[in-house]
Design a protein around this nucleic acid. Structure first.
Lengths: 197, 197
DNA sequence: AAATGGCGCTAACATTCGTTAGTATATTAT
DNA sequence: ATAATATACTAACGAATGTTAGCGCCATTT
């Protein structure tokens, strides 16, 4: 009988969720089966249900753990005493590093949330909408203070967030520049596109 | 017996593929069933097979028709006598307009190509890789000629392409700015982030 | 040593899936 | 009008899906 290995103080549930993140990223939530997941974990499919309630619960866990990290960060940034551009740069750097270091989770949360079911679905969508509004508000303040050029703030947010999700391609690429170079290049292009000059 | 309506000189197959694009965008390729598609078309599931060979064939058609349009465009742009920034702007405007006016197809091609099967899968991935290299080459020429600031070209490409796929959010948004405003804002931010100053 | 609870197993379930076979009907060509 | 073709239908298939039930092993606690 093959028990689930629990290294690094992870619970067995956390091991499952973590392997699921990889699988959901590779094949998509719908295409990844519980039997696939079981194999990745090294156990029979039915055994997974000693640790989780359902396949969808795994998706909940992934989506909301990611969403909470971003909400926490924007709380922190909003409270700071600094210019709008500095705030945006902080947020962007956080996004970039999340996408670099928690690739699987962030990617899945970003692309597969559609498969959540209510009430979690509406909940997630709401959090997302609110987050973007807060992001846009920072940009609008920057425009008002002439730090940022006159653009449509929601459009700018949409560009920033989606651009960062492109780090997916970096992960898949064979000849990667370093993570630091990636971060600096992205900041240079994205912030450079916003500022007044 | 309810025949498939064919308006605007579309074949029945084209009607099916077009409805499939909408469905695949909404639910994802895997989650959208042939029975869903049949209902959208107004027919029984089995009847679809008088017009298409398989579900995957629909995905082929969508992915490659989109890919071909982009390849054709970059052929055209490369042949032009103009500066690198002008070429990039042309490509970006094309991408933006494709994403605005052929939303469903472009979106599906972008997000669901993973579900293609070989040899189409490798084929599509190759085309994609080559397209990005050609795009990056234009940027590198611009850097060499000092039109564009010193950045990592592949990273710039990744940002541009993913940023544009964010138009998805614009489509879903309730209070949209006009398509023209969207285009100008995106160009301003993206090109602004590239140019030397 | 015995009892308890955590955890994995096998077997099976009801659905849903893409797809095929065979047949009937509608449209087009002769 | 008749023949031929295109297109729709019903019925069913085998495979795959998420999940449950019931049983037994193993580690920890008493």
């Amino acid at each position: 009988m093959a028990r689930i290995k629990t290294e690094n103080n992870l619970t067995r549930k956390e091991v499952i969720v973590s392997k699921a993140a990889t699988l959901f990223r590779e094949k998509g939530f719908k295409a990844a089966s519980m039997r696939d997941l079981a194999e990745a974990v090294g156990v029979e499919a039915a055994s997974l249900y000693n640790h989780i309630k359902s396949k969808t619960e795994i998706l909940h866990e992934l989506c909301f753990s990611v969403a909470n990290r971003f909400l926490h960060k924007i709380d922190e940034v909003e409270a700071e005493q600094s210019g709008s551009v500095a705030k945006i740069e902080k947020l962007l750097r956080f996004h970039i590093n999340e996408m670099i270091h928690h690739y699987e989770e962030v990617y899945v949360s970003d692309r597969e949330w559609k498969h959540l079911s209510d009430p979690y679905l509406s909940n997630f969508q709401n959090q997302r909408r609110i987050y973007r509004k807060r992001f846009a508000a920072i940009i609008e303040t920057g425009i008002y203070k002439n730090e940022i050029k006159k653009i449509d703030a929601p459009t700018a947010v949409l560009i920033m967030l989606h651009a960062i999700s492109g780090i997916e391609s970096w992960h898949r690429s064979t000849q990667k520049i370093t993570a630091e170079e990636l971060e600096e290049n992205m900041i240079s292009i994205l912030v450079g596109g916003l500022v007044n000059r």
